[in-house]
Computed example of a mutant assay.
Amino acid sequence: MPQNSTRRSTKQISGEDIVVETAWLYYHDGLNQSEIANRLLVSRATVVNYLQEARERGYIHTKLAPEAFNTHRAALELRDRFGLKAAYILPDGTGGQDDHASRIIRGAADWLPSLLEPGDRLGVAWGKTIYDVAERLEQTTIADLTVLQLVGSMATPYGFSADVCSSNVARKFSAKCINLHVPAILSTAEIAATLRAESLISKQLDAISDCNKTLFAVGSCKPDSHVASSGVATQQELEDYIANGAVGVLCGRFIDAKGDPVSGPLDDRMMGIELEELRHRDMGILVSVGEERVPAAVAAIRGGYATHVVTNQSCAAAMMELA
């Protein structure tokens, strides 16, 4: 048989097909770019362009195994120091804060499906971090999974509300979704109590208290934190909580350095899961982005809300120093 009989001309493979063929030869058959160019009778530069086009079209999904991130020294040290079940530590890389955040978000989205099982009831918190994780999730199906919104909805400066976070996670996993159809914060404790007594709302609150796994981030108590910018707390209310020892915000509720609830003016007006109901679940998955949130993240771990942590090396090192 002539040596060039295995070559395939681009006249035989054109358009979208040649992009898929190039991706197949590179990722499945293990050919290098020069070998593919020789096979398809194109230049090596053309092969590079085809591979880039395949990535841009979403034909290629590449992941590193979780073991690359949860079995190295930093992950094991963080796990052992705080008594976690697992830690998933991303390298910082050479980019700035936005790149650090993007890596952590991508890592959480890659890891989350492997942490869920058929029949799980996953409680999902609110905030930009969780919204971004939901956006990065790949479409997959986990049988009999239920996703539950842990906190009522509110206006945010980011253009989404809490129900969007839970709905997007449910959509990506082809799961049932139970949203909490109330505002996160009400004007008076009396109105909040009345709503909690409503049959529909009462059933939704009972449902979220029965989740066995949670996905959440923690916010800081700084003036520009999400709890303030979303309108959940006024600056004066935020200062009152800080004066009482608050270092972080979890599902709209304030915690001190030990992870214990901090009492304040919002407690009776908040619609969502209680902090005690978040503790000691089968799994609490904390996605921690940014060194300014390290004290809040450590508090959440100490309080028994987190069993699994996703962060990067610099935040993990800061957590170790604080510990």
Rank of each mutant, 00 (worst) to 15 (best):
M1Y: 12
P2Q: 13
N4L: 14
N4Y: 13
N4D: 14
S5H: 14
T10M: 05
Q12L: 02
G15P: 02
A23I: 12
W24L: 09
D29G: 09
N32P: 06
S34R: 13
L40C: 01
S43A: 04
L51E: 08
L51C: 15
A54T: 01
A54W: 04
I60V: 07
H61Y: 01
L64D: 15
A65V: 13
P66D: 05
E67F: 06
R73F: 05
A86L: 04
D92R: 13
G93C: 13
Q97S: 11
D99P: 00
D99C: 05
R103W: 00
I105E: 03
P118W: 09
T129F: 02
Q139V: 14
I142H: 12
A143E: 10
D144K: 11
T146I: 07
V151D: 08
C165T: 05
V169C: 10
F173S: 15
S174Y: 09
L180D: 02
L180G: 08
P183M: 02
T188L: 04
R196I: 00
S199V: 15
S202F: 09
Q204K: 01
I208H: 13
G219D: 11
S220Y: 08
K222T: 14
V227H: 02
G231M: 04
E237F: 05
I242A: 12
A246F: 06
V247E: 03
R253N: 03
P261F: 09
P261M: 08
P261D: 14
G264W: 06
R269S: 03
M270G: 09
I273P: 02
E274I: 01
E274G: 02
E274D: 09
L275N: 00
E276L: 03
L278M: 05
H280S: 10
M283A: 07
G284I: 08
I285W: 14
L286D: 01
V289L: 04
E291V: 13
A296R: 07
A296C: 07
V298N: 12
A299H: 11
G303D: 14
T307P: 03
H308Q: 02
C315I: 02
M319Q: 02
